[in-house]
Design a protein around this nucleic acid. Structure first.
Lengths: 195, 195
DNA sequence: GCGAGTTCTTGACATTTGTCAAGTCTGCGT
DNA sequence: ACGCAGACTTGACAAATGTCAAGAACTCGC
């Protein structure tokens, strides 16, 4: 059941992104294969080459790295996002990131070789990939900018407004790390925000 | 003279990036037109649609925004980089960034319409653009990461090692902003580093 | 080479955020 | 339901960084 819903979601997402027909969307989503992740399962481990791109149909995945002294969460992906270690997937070198399911996840995966085949077979995929890269760039640029002109508290408040659902579902320590502050600081700010 | 050198540099850069013949590199660089900027001149102003991509053959350009209370320098581009307000150039919406010459610059520009024409005429340009986007993504990701796991001092030291030339040529206040700290703090850290 | 304007440095102090440690809460497996 | 382990909260304090203000150094046009 979860599989079928997930595939439908991938289809819908592609149709909306490509503004295209059902047939073309299906020709794309057929390249993807379902996988269920249990809470705690790893989709990828640091140091491995990332040989896939994944579409997260449901659940949440945390992307993080262990730097020896501390664990740094770079990002938490929610449903309807494509996930990969871009550097590793595109350049086929060992990657930095761990990807771990924060809850049970329904994930649709495509291997690098299938990806290349798809890109060759479906010219519009290349267009789509281009827009994906552009939007990722814009998003990261915004994030760098937030560290240049906002305080920790302002970054917290922005996230609290933009993605309040994260604060129910994600362990606070991961959000803290993603915001570039300690769990204690985030705990205090959240308390203040709720009062 | 500067023009010829600049064109040569654009050619060399493209040949190296594309790993291609002189002829193809020239067919690309012919789409670009030279422009000399005087120190202080603006290549782009905040709020305008960015209708160009530029190759910086010599000089330095500061990319920044005025947020009302303070000016935030996002990046300082050195020679041999392509420069554009990516969001604005690709999506043709009004951009956020100012771009100002920190010194006299030799810049080679291509308009959006010529860019599109070139992309249509030279399929390898699309490949190149893709690699450009991927590398920009990786660079920004690294930069976000640096704000998550490094202190201000560590970010300073990293920049000081990686691009020491910036510290001679660029007003300290801009470097401070780019690193996400105040000029006073950077001044103190630099003093400590030099002793 | 001079002077106005900008930029940089320095000190004193304020604020923000981090660190550590203890105690509390919560959720999960048995 | 119990107990354990992990997660969260809280307080006291420490460290990093910011703010403000004054003076020094530099730059650039004349």
């Amino acid at each position: 059941m979860a599989y079928l819903n997930g595939m439908q979601q991938l289809n819908d997402y592609i149709r909306a992104s490509f503004n295209t027909e059902v047939a073309e969307a299906e020709s794309i989503s057929n390249y993807f294969h379902p996988q269920l992740l249990r809470k705690g399962d790893y989709l990828l481990r640091s140091g491995r080459v990332c040989d896939f791109m994944a579409f997260l149909a449901s659940g949440m995945i945390r992307i993080f790295v262990n730097t020896g002294d501390k664990e740094v969460t770079q990002w938490i992906s929610t449903r309807n996002y494509f996930i990969t270690d871009l550097s590793s997937f595109m350049l086929a070198n060992p990657g930095r990131w761990n990807m771990q399911a924060l809850e049970d996840c329904d994930v649709w995966m495509i291997s690098r070789s299938d990806y290349q085949q798809m890109a060759g077979a479906i010219p519009r995929w290349i267009e789509f990939e281009r827009m994906l890269l552009i939007h990722c760039f814009i998003h990261l640029e915004e994030r760098v900018f937030s560290h240049l002109y906002m305080s920790a508290e302002e970054r917290f408040q922005q996230l609290f407004v933009q993605q309040p659902e994260l604060f129910n579902q994600v362990p606070l320590q991961y959000l803290a790390s993603m915001l570039g502050m300690t769990p204690e600081t985030l705990s205090r700010m959240r308390k203040k925000a709720l009062s």
